[in-house]
Design a protein around this nucleic acid. Sequence first.
DNA 1: AATGAATGAGAGTTCATTCAT
DNA 2: GATGAATGAACTCTCATTCAT
Lengths: 191, 191, 191, 191
Amino acid sequence: MSQTTPQSDKTDRIVEQATRHFAEHGFEATKLSEVARDAGVAVGTIYLRYKSKNELLIAVMEAVETRFDTALQSKHLWEIEWPERFGHVMQAMFNQAAKEQNLVELMALVPFALRDGYRSGTRLRQSIAAHIADGQQRGQLRNDVDPAIAASLAHGMVEGAMSELMANPQADPTEMIEELTVAATRWLAVS
Amino acid sequence: MSQTTPQSDKTDRIVEQATRHFAEHGFEATKLSEVARDAGVAVGTIYLRYKSKNELLIAVMEAVETRFDTALQSKHLWEIEWPERFGHVMQAMFNQAAKEQNLVELMALVPFALRDGYRSGTRLRQSIAAHIADGQQRGQLRNDVDPAIAASLAHGMVEGAMSELMANPQADPTEMIEELTVAATRWLAVS
Amino acid sequence: MSQTTPQSDKTDRIVEQATRHFAEHGFEATKLSEVARDAGVAVGTIYLRYKSKNELLIAVMEAVETRFDTALQSKHLWEIEWPERFGHVMQAMFNQAAKEQNLVELMALVPFALRDGYRSGTRLRQSIAAHIADGQQRGQLRNDVDPAIAASLAHGMVEGAMSELMANPQADPTEMIEELTVAATRWLAVS
Amino acid sequence: MSQTTPQSDKTDRIVEQATRHFAEHGFEATKLSEVARDAGVAVGTIYLRYKSKNELLIAVMEAVETRFDTALQSKHLWEIEWPERFGHVMQAMFNQAAKEQNLVELMALVPFALRDGYRSGTRLRQSIAAHIADGQQRGQLRNDVDPAIAASLAHGMVEGAMSELMANPQADPTEMIEELTVAATRWLAVS
DNA sequence: AATGAATGAGAGTTCATTCAT
DNA sequence: GATGAATGAACTCTCATTCAT
């Protein structure tokens, strides 16, 4: 089903290594020569696919957001009732954030590199907003809250939890997810 | 009353301009030559005070955190009852975050530049945690929540709100603060 | 017969110009930008070959020593009997020293730049010591002198002669070589 | 007899520390701020006495040469007969060179820093030449050698010996002085 | 399409020198 | 005379980007 031409193979390896380097060292400290070396291609090959380092970063960030999105749009998730769904949504975001590790931090960095052309997190917040709107339509979430605003606050809470976890490695992830769920439920569920 | 030696004068201008440049362009894109020029000093003068660009960034971040801290520790704030205090704390953080603009984003960036020696946001989260603990002691906030966790989630929410505001300039700050307050109240106030 | 790839071509020009600049201005006063310009390459090209200015100096010094060495190890020289060989050895060192001009002075400078990793003159002194040992084995030179010590004194004498010649341009090189030869012969030849 | 005003006191300390720093780190790597600090004066004070770093180096080198000179012109030395005097002259130069350590190397460096205005070693070679001329007048040294040339070769030999000693710390100074004396005697003494 | 040697603009940093106090 | 904070020119080194092969 999925075609793997030699080209797409290289593209995949480039994005994979770029993701790793951006996550580990940040944007500026990532050297295209090292990305190329680790991807097993020549520097020039990267430039056949992306016009600049900036564009490569955009491609990486879009891939990250797509993965978040996919996690949030799994059919299974949309079938769960509220407020139980909170736990699952939080868990999904959290899992993804944990996998992507520093890329979550990196997303905050993008605006500096690319004042224009890229607004990180937008798609992600839209997916969360869609979940919340769904809950409102089902009458299971309070409808006195703008889904977009609720989504950005919820997104911020997950990032806050990740941030605490990174600053404080002995914190307990399970406890944090639970607290996230409790907070969201009290705040948004119909009483 | 307040002493202003020529030295401290220059230091102030350097930190002020560095803050502005870091906030507007990020760490790497900030040029010390421009910071110096805008502060009205020579590049070398910066180096009399800070051993490196990294150290200058640390100084800037510490000043930012101090300002947040000061806002959160105003005596007046600590005299307000809960859950009303939520509104004022949120407002205070929000005001400060709005003033510091992109520095909030920058705080997420620091770890890449200075993987060690600096953990941004820690002091700020501790101040919030102190407020929450205070509310618990007064019996006005639920005490089944760890203040440290609650603080990081609350901090995240404010950042999420700021992020939304920057991505979406026609969003209404007043509405966001209100929503922040409502969310925190439902989540943490004793019912 | 002799392969000249574009790369080795550039390397040669870089070393050639670096040699000239180091010799004319010393280590610190040599500007890589000027070396690059005179070699007809970009600064970055130098750094593709040498990790730092220090490494470039080492490469230059090694090339100088190699040239001295080659001059002293010419098969023809080793076939001459003692004490006649003194004249030829002295002449060879002297010619080389005259060609390399200030690089001889530069060799004394290296230790400051590279306290470690490079000991200049060592190979040269070893070559001279080999000649002297050869004369002793043939029974044509006194064998109550340690060849290593004799080599360092002889080497010093040549440098002293060069030094005099540079301080005092109207001195006569031929006379100095003759005097060097006489001194060495009286000192080391079996009577 | 010798007046020690506060000024000359400071001058002495400046030259003393400058000597140490130049000897230990070379010309370029010597920082006037450190010299000043170690001499217990302000940087500006150095500039009240010397117009530039170059001039300070000249002052240091002149002081070094003066010390060598003084050692070679001690009345006692001039009363010794030849060829015995060789041993004492060699010893005197050697002692001084050992004390001044790297300054001997530094003397070779001066020409780069000060292409004009200073020719190092000249006075020293003149003092040696005077000794040799004295031996010739007394009929105790061969007079078929130009004292100036002989002096430069002899000077070179001592530097060669020092150089060997620095490159090869387990070499025996006593043996080297002895060898220096033997060489000079065979070369220059009337048979 | 792929390569990777070459480019060169640009930044952080240092430190001799000055001069107001 | 003495100070030392301030200056700013100048250097080494990096790395995104290009392009001949």
